[in-house]
Amino acid sequence: MDITTWMSNHTGWADFILVGLFRQSQHPALLCVVIFLIFLMALSGNAVLIILIHSSAKLHTPMYFFISQLSLMDMMYISITVPKMLLDQVLDVSTISIPECGMQMFLYLTLGGSEYFLLAAMAYDRYMVICHPLHYPMLMNHRVCLLLASGRWFLGSVDGFMLTPVTMTFPFCRSQKIQHFFCEVPAVMKLSCSDTLLYDTLMYLCCVLMLLIPVTVISGSYSCILLTIHRMNSAEGRRKALATCSSHMMVVTLFYGAAVYTYMLPSSYHTPQKDMVVSVFYTILTPVLNPLIYSFRNKDVTGALRKMLSVGPVFQETVK
């Protein structure tokens, strides 16, 4: 018996039903168009940022390497949920098979966990460049950056491998309807007809650990950064240091705030409508905001973009 047949027999049906965003909207067609435009903006904005970072020699630094990794993750993150959601709306379909649901859950858990640690690596990078500028090129070389990047993928996949199989092997018999637009763990677990108290506790502890380690790194890094900035005699140096860190702190606040609400607040704070709004924020809106935060507030990125746009027409004329 294959895994698909076993899971279907174990749960009692072959498919889940995603209630989704559009059934909650009075103007589903308009909402569909808006989300599609946001999806295109997220893909194009992050793709442009990745191209700029890899094509401009001035941006070949650890900070921009991590930003390009964040952009790549944002493109993958929004692609997990939005294309299926839009396609289902166009085709008037609302079902998702159990293997598809499990794969979607695993991918967003892996990417979410990886992003926690990526943001911690970015904070550590800012700490090194501000607090240890003389040793920075040696301590944050290309090998170290690759090690940090591969490490956060590994830690993120551990989160996915831990939670997905256990969640998907629970018996679901309360309803087929997932009160969400994708297979998020808390929304799926509400369908289980067995006692999930122990699993909820373990999931809570797992999420605390997954959040606690990066938050500790981020808090420690920025505490040292603030002390270093306070000791600076140059007002210009203080301004540059704060500007360097402010963009990252905005992204950290957006992403971690949504994660704390989803996985750490008691169930009494949650309703299906609130959960979907928060999930829209960190799965759909955040991937659009991140490239805007890192581009409009960064002179190096805007300078590289102007240079690329000015070189484009000259290159085209040369080719002709």
Rank of each mutant, 00 (worst) to 15 (best):
E115I: 12
P287E: 04
Q24M: 14
G303E: 07
C245P: 03
V188P: 00
S68F: 03
C145K: 02
F161K: 04
F65Q: 04
L155H: 00
S310M: 14
G113W: 00
Q69W: 14
G237Q: 07
I284D: 05
E100Y: 03
V251N: 14
M162D: 13
D88E: 09
M249G: 15
M203K: 12
I50S: 00
Y64G: 04
A241V: 06
F106D: 05
T11K: 10
F170Y: 08
G113M: 02
S234E: 11
M232R: 05
C224D: 12
L242N: 07
E100L: 08
M122P: 02
L254N: 08
S97W: 02
Y127P: 01
Y108I: 15
V188S: 01
F161H: 10
C224N: 09
R238T: 06
W153K: 07
G257D: 03
S44D: 00
W6T: 14
F170S: 05
D92Q: 15
L40Y: 08
C206P: 00
L163N: 06
I98Q: 05
H270W: 03
T169W: 07
V19D: 15
K299N: 07
S8R: 14
S8F: 14
C131V: 06
M103Y: 13
D2Q: 11
R152T: 00
C207A: 12
K58L: 08
S295R: 02
E100K: 06
V185Q: 14
A243I: 10
S279D: 11
V82C: 06
I225G: 03
Y261G: 00
N9P: 01
K58R: 12
G12M: 09
S94H: 13
I51S: 13
P99R: 02
V188E: 01
T169P: 00
T228Q: 12
Q89V: 06
S295D: 03
T61H: 06
L289R: 08
Y64K: 04
S247P: 05
M7L: 15
F161V: 04
